[in-house]
Design a protein around this nucleic acid. Structure first.
Lengths: 154, 154
DNA sequence: ACTTTTTACTTGCGTATTGCAAGTTATATT
DNA sequence: AATATAACTTGCAATACGCAAGTAAAAAGT
């Protein structure tokens, strides 16, 4: 699974890495739902299978999108945390959500329009900045406080 | 192939539709390389297989991302042209290219840095607007002029 | 101390998507 | 009328995805 690039186009190369059904969903869950452990991800709405989750987390670590660590007081639970390279995916996610909001409702009427989406509609840039700032705050606290939930009910 | 949605999350729903290796590449080729016929797509750098191309074009038409038409004087050649819903994907593509430009060079050093990418780096918004405006100009001419190339050598 | 639960996986197997090569049909060109 | 071109389809191999079950190590409960 070492990602082979089709050509030198920056658009296509991004899709060689991100063009699947799971990687960006996992980033979303970390960024907007505060998920950080293997268990967290398996309990999500999207219901990722454990074998795929395992493979994707490994790949994402290899790609440098996330880092695998542990809390000093717990040898069992692994923490998966976004790196800067992973955090840099935020604007892509925001554009994806924005596109769904504007263009997918005809074939999928139940798409959520919660507080988060309304914020996004008003100010995309501020929404992106908020997600990043929340996650960075969470990272700072990591190791001390057990959990700094970022859940926004998108 | 009727796209089934995993849940009601706008992020995830976008990926249910766009989360594959080809749809956004096809949109990119239309938007930045002036591709519009079946033949055009098969001749690309990315080398999409004809069976996959056929399936994806059908799906994209069904999703309303593109429209299939012909020129009045030619019954053989099909034209695939982006709709507004398809054009609305432009900001996503721009963010993808921008992410590659900034984060993928370590594992893929040959990523292009042409004129287009330099424009993108300087002003993402203006770059997006330029792509859209170029494509709309091309659409206007369609039917009269044979080809309004948008090729930017990204 | 020892039994149970929790977490983080792996393995096996079936299904779905992707990819290659070759073939087919209709239209256009010579 | 013969050849070439465009737009496909079909068959089959390879890869990715998905479910269910099982395992190992650490933590929690008694």
């Amino acid at each position: 699974m070492p990602v082979d690039f089709r050509c030198d186009c920056p658009f296509t190369s991004a899709l060689d890495v991100l063009g699947d059904k799971w990687i960006l969903v996992i980033v979303k869950q970390m960024l907007t739902e505060g998920k950080e452990t293997f268990k967290d991800f398996t309990e999500s709405d999207e219901a990722i299978a454990t074998n795929i989750l395992s493979a994707k987390l490994k790949l994402m670590e290899k790609l440098g999108l996330l880092q695998k660590t542990k809390r000093p007081d717990n040898k069992k639970v692994n923490l998966y945390l976004l790196t800067e390279k992973g955090l840099a995916l935020t604007p892509i996610l925001v554009e994806l959500a924005n596109w769904s909001d504007n263009n997918l409702r005809d074939i999928h009427p139940d798409i959520l329009s919660g507080e988060g989406m309304q914020f996004l509609r008003q100010d995309k840039t501020a929404f992106t900045a908020m997600l990043l700032s929340n996650y960075r705050k969470k990272l700072e606290k990591e190791g001390l406080k057990a959990r700094a939930i970022v859940n926004l009910d998108i």
